[in-house]
Nucleic acid binder design. Sequence first.
DNA 1: TCAATGATTTTG
DNA 2: AAAATCATTGAT
Length: 185
Amino acid sequence: MKTGKIKKIRLNTKSKKNRVPREFFIRDVLDVAPEILGYKLVQKNQNSITAYSISEVEAYRGEEDLACHARRGKTPRTRVMYETGGVLYVYLIYGMHWMLNIVTGEKNNPQALLIRGLKGVSGPGRLTNALDIDGAFNGLDITSSEKIWVEKNYIENKRVTTYPRIGVDYAGEYYSNIPWRFVLE
DNA sequence: TCAATGATTTTG
DNA sequence: AAAATCATTGAT
């Protein structure tokens, strides 16, 4: 069918044009975090494309960060955090909630950004439920995937506020209080 | 305030 | 092989 074909081509062109490239993610997670707020997390389903504005993220930064899963080194689960930035780290927590993270930084520097909120969807578990994201997305490269990617978006008078991360009381005085949660106001 | 719920990691 | 941990959520 002709119309269907034309539509598909237009969508693909748009995604390639606006997609955030790998270089964006191969930087320190603390630089990526405030910048990615307001950017669009874009997902392609059958025929439709939906874009969600990223509103809240948390930074997890290296083996020295006692709240980071990589604090005890590389394991089967944390392996993907050691990859070059731009891939997804998706894991199950509390036996029921999938958490969506984007790996950042250079290879073998385990960092990740937990996506905690999108405009209209708050809570990291509710977010993955809404977007139908599960373990099958683990390791997916968002700089080349046709299913999910990030697009740049300019926000006028953008204001970012930082807070301590949620649910990391076990991480010791310093890392449980460090303001590595970033919220778009 | 606490139960649900199961993969991952440690041996608490 | 068994026990503990856990980037949450929703109901009581």
